[in-house]
Design a protein around this nucleic acid. Structure first.
Length: 1033
RNA sequence: GCCGGGAUGGCGGAAUGGUAGACGCGGCGGUCUCAAACACCGUUGAGCUUAAACUCAUGCGGGUUCGAGUCCCGCUCCCGGCACCA
């Protein structure tokens, strides 16, 4: 009989026995309850698993194993999230085809998962990159499209210049690409979106019905960002435009001079060309600038006649048609000239004559550029005029021809609106520009350009002064009829609400800041006190965003509370027909197309006109073709677009079509895998209705908190759509969700040395463990950071199993800290759990001689004597507590319960070599229960112990012990005795002793007596089984 | 700034409003051993002590209660998330 935990001797043996017996295959026995236990779909990284990952998989395994022993049909699958950017980037780095690479990585994951004995049913496994899987991803895409939830539209998207793809909002963190940390840029390209915003309300509402960590639910609520308020129309009074006559006169003045300028420019270019040509004969260095100057000259000679024609006949229509393109050409000529100057400067000119030639050329080119600049300016003038012609057509300037919609959650403050603000991207901005005088236009354009050049992050940077420009247009406050100035400012975002706000500086901090900078009036509307005789209470500070108070300065609404005013004002807006109650969400549509190779192809074909058509079902899957080069390109097109065989297809009507070459982002693939696990081999359908009816929803979903908004929101969305389509029996996929804490490793850092710089936000430089070895401890800064390959601080399960054994590792993962807390990893901790397992083996070896295989039939027939009641008490206490703890995710106390049981049984075993019949039976029950309770956490050891008792089969197939409260209850209890709430003594009493008896005994406890002497006992508190408290005075 | 979660010995942590510190790590002392490792036994919050007894202890300040780590009010600090969302 084994007396120690010797993992090397038996763990591997059991793992192969389990495999040979197909022990982990999903059982579906009619009439039993089901349990679906699932871990987050992992991306199999090349680094393999660390003990950090195991903290996810082991607890889920414990629950699934217990549920199975309790007689549930258990579904416990595992697969791999193979598609997506991380895999593709890794493949490019390793120069390997991604499919092949990911297969290797997944195999390694599986090997490691098996190594720690996780009971996955591998027969149900798949990768999201399997055509047999993504065929159905495409099928769901089609379903979404049919239901109007997938659409292609031009959009300004977050573009990662390093990964060369568009990203979803959720993948941008603080203005940086979540994957690679590169600052994202804005790009406008046609993209596929899933209209998740249609489900905003349902996604919000469903959160109330599921058992998830409060923090995650709150994050989703914030992400959806519901706010209720009012939306209403604000009329705009436009500025008087400059008169047409004046503009025409200016133009007429300018055109003749322009011809002269052109001549000068031509001469300058010719002279530069001549100089360069001469220089070129002496040295090749001058060749590039020469060629460039020739190009500029050629373009210029094309433009000149057009300009001459315009000058001769300044017809407004012609201006409109040509000025814009001419302006653009001049713009680019300027850029080119600047580039040439740079080239010339770059030439090494040792020779003094070369040097003067260089300087002369530069001067000439500068002059030419100035002329172009001037001409471009004039064209801008043309353009202005042309646009004015158009804008004024059919519009009465100065009247309320234009309006915008404003959204507010504080309609009660409408009387305090002292200005309005449009986002720089607001459509009305262009209209305002078009009717503004030139100088105004310049100012506004300049501001728009500056605003656009800012990244979202800079735009929202903390402490940044609020910038903006005033326009000559005014908005009209519908409540007061007053004209108020209209601004354009980048603190208003186009993406939220209507992109236009009513600004109330008295009651909004941002509006206040802006008003402060721009010297705008601040009018208080809310008083914290109920207004009395005084019209205007003094002494409150601005801005106040109080949610409680009374209205002042608000016409007939003065005196109402905020809540009353909101209600009344919305009624008023509706009566006037200018506005209504409105709910807004922060949630944006889900950008799903990626201009990358390694993803699920979007099953769409464009016809000749470019209209998207869905690939018919029988052509699914649209398979990802093998390619030589899958590196992304800069132009925003997927590598697939370079494969003619893939791109060119025949459409339904036989004509030639073009395939969509973008692929779906990885989050699409992981939005339904939990459904496929219910019926993974179905090639007729994504799943059968019966299979989902049988298994859904997932009863226990476990993974890291980092997926709080992305995967978990998307998966809920798809499930809800499928539910609405009648294809899924539940609308919430994950009934219970739990997040495990992270595993941190102690990692060496040091202060930067002279000349070294730190990245923003960093406070130290990472040191390798080898390097740290040789360093002085005082120079080192040890920090607890997340395990990752790049930090070199990873402990792998392979090492841990090798050194301590799989069961010791599993127990430590459970025991080290509460499940949802971060832990500071130390290998020494496994020493403790390994020692515990040795104590279990030793205990069982000692008790084995008393083993009665058929104890169950006899134990209740025999009167318990001697130690038997204590043994049974220890056993049943452990059963009850362990079962409850696992159910509650309290794995650390589940393990400590087992330790306590072992300690107690050890104590009871000590010094008593002989056992009577009832003790034998009690010990048998204890031993069997202990082994079975241990089985979910330490399955190898449990099976080894079970086999040593000649138990048949595997512990996983045994029934989970059932605890009896009656047997767990102590017959003698310790009662604490307090006087005035202070502990003064204790006594032992029979559990069923009467209150009077206990009180009497308590008063007689030796240590208690002095505290009662001479005092009057005013109250006696008795808590059965726990304590007595005498209140005296 | 807003939202969420925390703070208990040297360390990880335990504790339905009822004997704070279970269980484990580490430390100390011991047994076994030629020795080490393993294992086992004992001990281990602080203060004051020969000891007993007593006092103090769950981030800080109040409150409710016979009794508060736990409930309420007001702070401090730490972690996570969001962040010009009108």
């Amino acid at each position: 009989m084994r007396e120690r935990y010797e993992p090397g001797e038996f763990e591997g043996v059991w793992r192969s026995r389990w495999a040979d017996a197909d022990l982990f295959l999903t059982h579906e026995v009619e009439g039993r309850p089901k349990f679906y236990g699932l871990d987050f779909f992992p991306y199999p990284s090349g680094a393999g698993l660390s003990v950090g990952h195991c903290r996810n998989y082991v607890p889920t395994d414990v629950i699934c194993r217990m549920k199975r022993m309790q007689g549930f049909n258990v579904l416990h699958p595992m697969g791999f999230d193979a598609f997506g950017l991380p895999a593709e980037n890794e493949a490019i780095k390793r120069q390997r085809p991604p499919g092949e690479m990911i297969d290797d990585y997944a195999d390694n994951y599986r090997r490691q998962m098996d190594l720690i004995g996780v009971s996955y049913d591998w027969s149900r496994s798949f990768k999201s990159s399997d055509p047999s899987y993504y065929r159905w991803t495409q099928w769901i895409f089609k379903l979404l499209h049919e239901r109007g939830l997938a659409e292609r539209r031009q959009a300004e998207v977050n573009w990662c210049p390093k990964d060369k793809t568009a990203l979803a909002n959720e993948e941008v963190v603080g203005g940086l690409c979540e994957r690679c940390g590169t600052p994202v840029e804005k790009r406008s390209i046609p993209q596929w979106f899933f209209r998740i915003t249609e489900y905003a309300e349902q996604l919000l509402e469903g959160l109330d019905r599921i058992d998830w960590p409060e923090g995650i639910k709150q994050m989703q609520r914030n992400w959806i960002g519901k706010s209720e308020g009012a939306q209403f129309r604000m009329d705009v009074v436009l500025p008087e435009p400059p008169s047409l006559e004046a503009a025409e006169a200016r133009l007429a003045q300018r055109l003749p001079g322009m011809a002269e300028q052109m001549k000068q420019a031509r001469a300058l270019l010719a002279s530069a060309e001549a100089t360069l040509q001469a220089a070129n004969e002496e040295s090749e260095d001058w060749e590039t600038p020469l060629e460039e100057v020739r190009k500029v000259k050629a373009v210029f000679s094309l433009v000149e006649p057009q300009l001459a024609a315009l000058a001769a006949d300044p017809d407004p229509d012609a201006l409109m048609n040509q000025s814009q393109s001419l302006q653009a050409i001049h713009d680019s000529l300027e850029d080119q000239l600047e580039a040439i100057r740079e080239q010339i400067r770059g030439i090494d000119a040792d020779d003094p004559s070369d040097k003067s030639r260089q300087q002369g050329l530069i001067r000439q080119l500068e002059q030419a550029e100035e002329i172009f600049d001037d001409i471009e300016d004039a064209f801008e003038d043309f353009l202005d005029l042309a646009v004015l012609h158009r804008a004024n057509d059919g519009m009465e300037i100065g009247r309320q021809e234009l309006s915008f919609e404003a959204f507010t959650t504080r309609i009660d403050t409408i009387y305090g609106v002292t200005f309005c603000v449009l986002a720089p991207e607001h459509p009305l901005v262009e209209k305002i520009i078009s009717v503004s005088p030139l100088s105004e236009r310049r100012r506004i354009r300049q501001y728009l350009k500056k605003a656009k050049s800012l990244t979202d992050e800079d735009r929202a940077a903390e402490g940044r002064e609020k910038t903006g420009v005033r326009t000559l247009a005014h908005a009209i406050n519908p409540a007061t009829g007053q004209r108020i100035p209209l601004f354009i400012a980048d603190y208003v975002m186009m993406g939220y609400g209507t992109g236009a706000i009513m600004a109330v500086p008295a009651h909004d901090e941002r509006d206040f800041e802006f008003a402060f900078v721009h010297g705008l009036p601040v009018l208080p509307i809310i008083s914290p006190e109920k207004p009395g005789k005084q019209a205007m209470p003094s002494g409150f500070t601005l801005p106040s965003s109080a949610k409680e108070g009374w209205l002042i300065n608000s016409g007939s609404f003065s005196g109402l509370t905020i809540a009353e005013a909101q209600e009344k004002l919305i009624e008023w807006l509706e009566e006037e027909g200018i506005g209504e109650k409105k709910v807004n969400y922060r949630l944006r549509d889900w950008l799903i197309s990626r201009q990358r190779y390694w993803g699920c192809p979007i099953p769409v074909i464009y016809d000749k006109e470019g209209h998207p058509e869905l690939a018919p079902d029988d052509l699914l899957p649209v398979e990802l073709p093998p390619v030589e080069s899958y590196e992304p390109s800069d132009d925003g097109s997927s590598p697939l677009s370079r494969i003619p065989d893939f791109v060119n297809v025949t459409t339904a009507d036989g004509s030639l079509g073009r395939r969509e070459t973008d692929t779906l982002g990885g989050f699409a693939c992981s939005s339904w895998y939990f459904l496929r696990f219910c019926d993974p081999h179905n090639d007729e359908a994504a799943w059968s209705p019966e299979s989902l009816a049988k298994w859904m929803p997932v009863d226990c979903y476990v993974g890291g908190a980092e997926h709080a908004v992305m995967h978990l929101l998307y998966a809920r969305f798809w499930t809800k759509v499928l539910f609405d389509a009648g294809l899924c029996p539940v609308d919430e996929p994950f009934q219970t969700l739990r997040n495990q804490g992270q595993v941190l490793a102690k990692t060496p850092y040091r202060a930067p040395r002279e000349g070294e710089t730190l990245d923003v936000g960093d406070t130290g430089i990472l040191v390798s463990f080898a390097e740290a070895e040789g360093m002085d401890e005082k120079d080192l800064d040890w920090r607890w950071v997340r395990m990752s390959k790049s930090k070199g601080n990873v402990v792998t399960p392979d090492e841990a199993v090798e050194a301590y054994g799989a069961d010791a590792l599993r127990l430590f993962e459970l025991f080290v800290a509460p499940f949802d807390q971060n832990v500071q990893w130390s290998n020494e901790g496994m020493q403790g759990t390994s020692r515990f397992l040795t104590r279990v083996f030793k205990l069982c070896a000692e008790l084995a001689p008393f083993w009665q295989p058929n104890w169950r039939a006899q134990i209740d027939q025999v009167e318990p004597t001697n130690r038997a009641p204590a043994i049974r008490r220890a056993t049943h206490k452990a059963i009850l507590k362990a079962t409850d703890d696992i159910e509650k995710f309290a794995f650390n106390t589940y393990v400590s319960t087992l330790m306590i049981a072992v300690n107690e049984l050890n104590e009871l075993t000590k010094g008593n070599a002989e056992c009577d019949d009832s003790e034998r039976l009690a010990f048998s029950e204890a031993m069997e229960s202990l082994i079975l309770l241990l089985s979910p956490a330490a399955p190898h050891s449990a099976d080894e112990l079970w086999a040593q008792l000649d138990g048949a089969g595997f512990t996983l197939n045994c029934a989970w012990p059932v605890g009896q409260a009656r047997l767990a209850a102590a017959d003698v209890v310790q009662i604490a005795v307090q006087v005035n709430g202070k502990l003064r003594g204790s006594l032992e009493a029979a559990a069923d002793a009467s209150e009077e008896a206990v009180l009497a005994a308590a008063a007689a406890v030796e240590k208690v007596v002095p505290y009662l002497e001479g005092k009057e006992v005013v109250k006696r508190v008795y808590v059965p089984g726990r304590l007595v408290n005498f209140v005296v005075r």
